[in-house]
Design a protein around this nucleic acid. Structure first.
Lengths: 138, 138
DNA sequence: CCTTGAACCTCTAGTCACTAGAGGTCGTAT
DNA sequence: ATACGACCTCTAGTGACTAGAGGTTCAAGG
């Protein structure tokens, strides 16, 4: 049996976050001691590990809820899990593309600034004020 | 003079968001008509354009507040603006690195799923449940 | 057995950057 | 004069937590 603190150190999920997950129904309410403290079994640890891992991969709580439902009904087809992962992959890829564009502009912006003038003639400020100075859309 | 709606269509910032920016002090309170409606001049339009552009580049409201202060005192050195842009660039780059790692794992995850089994034997589910199946840390 | 102190409990409120909705007023075109 | 869209304020909600107050329980050392 694990206390909530032990679960926290083992999974890397903070204690208030674990309680929050329970509150929103992502984790089932565990047993309690006579003094009303949470005690988790191995299955609680595993479920939280699953949640943590999926969160690290950027899955939303909503998506994780669906994944957990699939996990609880292991005879359902796995296509849906694949779809969720696929959607997550596309979201990640579009974020990367967008960030790459931002990176390019920020690099241009930083390169143009020598830190030796006043903001009145600063390329960073001018570029932020005037979108037309950007090379591409964002 | 522009109404809040005209400002919205010209900058692409939604009307409630403009009011929100005013509320938190990012935009100065504009003039009002006799009937209490906001009327903006060109400088209001420009300031909102600046904010929009910086937000699109991922600057936090806090950072934008600083940038606007710098803009309002154009005789200060621009080094600080450069620092903010530099910090933003580093943040973007680390996000990109992280997302690239996630992308790799998600691709592996999606590739391993053929959508023809049950979740009991699904690679997606197994991989999410067991972090040890990951190739690298995240 | 007793005490100490860290870990636990609940509850409320705050974070960021908005977004949604209710219920009412204003401006402008016909 | 009358529509009707755009505007106003205010409150509350979003996601995914985080922080703090104020109180209780557990486990280890004496």
């Amino acid at each position: 049996m694990f206390s909530i603190g032990q679960l926290s150190t083992r999974t890397g999920v903070k204690v208030p976050t674990i309680r929050y997950y329970e509150e929103i129904g992502l984790l089932p309410a565990p047993e309690r001691t006579g003094g009303n403290q949470r005690r988790y079994g191995v299955e609680g640890l595993q479920r939280l590990g699953f949640v943590k891992h999926a969160r690290d991969l950027g899955f939303s709580i909503e998506a994780i809820t669906k994944l957990l439902e699939l996990q609880d009904h292991p005879d359902c087809t796995c296509a849906e899990a694949g779809d969720l992962a696929q959607a997550q992959l596309l979201a990640v890829q579009s974020k990367i593309a967008r960030l790459n564009r931002l990176q390019a502009e920020l690099q241009r912006l930083v390169a143009g600034c020598h830190g030796d003038g006043t903001t009145g003639e600063c390329y960073v400020m001018a570029s932020l004020a005037d979108h037309d100075l950007c090379l591409d859309e964002h």
